[in-house]
Amino acid sequence: MGKPNVGMLVSQLREEEKLLLRAFASHGIDPVRLTDRKLQLELTDLTWLQEMELDVVLDRCLAHGRAGIVLQALDVAGVRSVNTRRAAVIADDKVECSLILGARGIPTLRTFMAFTVESALEALEQVGYPAVMKPVAGSWGRLLGKVNSPGAARALLEHKRQLGSYHHSMFYIQEYIEKPGRDLRIFIVGDDIVAGSYRSAEHWVTNVARGAVSAPCPITPEIAEISMRAAKAIEVEIAGVDLVETPDGLKVIEVNGGAEFKGLMSTTEYDIAQHIVDYVVNSCSDSQSSSLNGTYSASKQSMANGE
């Protein structure tokens, strides 16, 4: 086939999206920009979407709610998206991620859900203090709480219950790991692990969005195996898998579908944006590249490590 007709779902152009656009330009492709705020989706007749004749849409939307709806429309219209709507929805849902990781036996953090203050306090007793509370849908380390005692937990739970949205009265409770001042971000594209970084911060929250500093992380076989297992379980093709080092080995914190790679870019000369774009473009002509049953590519690991 000729050049694919590519769409890119965006909220705004960050450094990553500009790099992706340049990488698409290297293929002679100028993606159709689907800017979430400007879209008017006629849900009952998707002819307008089919008439765009898009072969694939790369999802770089910041707003999870909007992305889920647009990807759903694309799915119904028969337009392939990367990630798929199913993968994006699973990745954005901490509950579903925890259920899937647990069911697949992939090492992850012990996690409970509770729906009342009293049942949440009982769950916290099982997890032990300190513990971490997170919104069921959220990112960038927003609204994370580390609770050190039953008294602090009750105060936080009562406050969350008053926030208004019912989401904040569904209490997602997770064990706290005394990590060595860092966690790991492993970036996956298709069947390749393209780069990894340590994210260090003095604060217990080590999101780059919260100021954590990235440093190169060599991809060991253990890192490769757990990261790829997690990505395949969540069905994401492009993902940032976050891992934490524990006394029991590596555990998965979460899998990010709309993964950012700004921090990673400072740790590797490998062109992550180009790799993403090559994958998306090739997926239009090679159905195998969208397979979720591949294996880790050792050659890309070597490249990521600068070998």
């Binding site: 707003a63 999870h64 959220g138 969005a209």
Partner: peptide, 11 residues
């Protein structure tokens, strides 16, 4: 002015 960050923004 850029849009304010909303609750569901993120990765």
């Amino acid at each position: 002015l850029a849009p304010d960050e909303e609750e569901d923004w993120g990765e």
